[in-house]
Design a protein around this nucleic acid. Structure first.
Lengths: 197, 197
DNA sequence: AGCGTAGGCCAACACGTGTTGACAGTCCAG
DNA sequence: CTGGACTGTCAACACGTGTTGGCCTACGCT
């Protein structure tokens, strides 16, 4: 509906006076989406956290979906698996994802939303296809098998995130990061590089 | 509020005339919860599917939480791992869970609800503790390590359910059941029975 | 100084939710 | 046949939601 995207409301150097508000909204939105999921994260609650009026959210991000799209990034920042020693790929991936999930809760939000919201699931499929799958193509020998192997890897990685950060199964939460790497690393290594069983 | 639980409304042999309605409600609830998750599954929609009035749901199940509790079973029907050959435990578990998820969608509902709803997550923790953990105790050598190993197994099993039945990542959906058993069986076998890395 | 405009708040709308209570048909025991 | 319960429907309540438009303030340029 409101197509004006760039070029509205700048003063000097593209820095708008309202940027602090915009960022406050985004930050609050990230936390709420991560904690509550898409449906339970209300615009009113987000606005309250950001100490502004709910209508500001609408003004800056159009609607709730727009806010979610703006707040939650889907950049996995995957390392270039070409530079990683072939035998360390599994451990490297687990380490990377652990860091990703623990440094901020955006990706937990992705999970919660993907589990309930149709559009959220679609977006996770895109992320998988555009980021994890190319990485798998670099790691695994037969490119034709890459999708299946990436799917297997995703099942273990997302399962870890689900049980540890969303469901919070006590034994999974209690595991030290090194333990997780030691256990899951070989699994991913096998899914990505071992010959088909 | 209405404490009358048993002994109301029976005719002969404990068979109530309204049982067909009750079952219709439960069946519709299961489908809706599985498809939409707890928040998006509305009582009105469930009632419509069951072709009755929304108020009947309240009468028979008290409130939405009561309906969810009644509709979704949390019995994993795990086989006795004592009777399974030690080397086949991993494959047996994967096979069992695949059958569980594909025969009805209750357990997908559990996942969706656990991901968004606090009470749902709590209930999944209970299920884990009361059913998967005892099974793991039978399977793994050192009983002290059983919780961690059960947690690892849960991460892979729930991750499979998440990617295949909830997010529907195409490569994971495309895998044949035998392929999944062949890939994930060894993983679970290792998590449950192999020595600590 | 004056003015346009961006930033912000307030009140309200329309809608969907879970939930409740009053009312009508229906079956069965006495 | 009659009374009382069970089964079911209808309409409404109270509330929270996303969303909208009008209004006031205050900044920044000329």
């Amino acid at each position: 509906m409101n197509g004006s995207k760039s070029r509205d409301t700048e003063t000097v150097g593209g820095v708008r006076r309202s940027d602090v508000t915009r960022n406050a909204i985004l930050e609050a939105a990230r936390e709420r989406f991560a904690a509550d999921g898409y449906e339970r994260a209300t615009i009113r609650a987000i606005a309250k956290d950001a100490r502004i009026d709910p209508s500001m959210v609408m003004r800056y991000y159009g609607n709730k979906e727009g806010l979610f799209a703006a707040a939650v990034s889907f950049d996995l920042r995957l390392p270039d698996l070409g530079t990683v020693a072939r035998a360390d790929i599994g451990r490297a991936l687990v380490t990377h994802f652990l860091a990703l999930w623990e440094e901020n809760e955006e990706f937990t939000a992705m999970l919660r939303v993907g589990a309930t919201n149709q559009a959220g699931a679609e977006r996770m499929r895109d992320t998988f296809r555009e980021q994890l799958l190319p990485a798998a193509r670099q790691a695994c020998p037969d490119p034709e098998q890459a999708p299946a192997r990436a799917g297997l890897a995703a099942s273990q990685l997302l399962g870890l995130a689900l049980t540890r950060y969303v469901l919070r199964l006590p034994p999974t939460v209690a595991l030290a990061r090194e333990e997780i790497v030691a256990w899951l690393g070989p699994t991913l290594q096998r899914y990505l590089t071992a010959p088909s069983p």
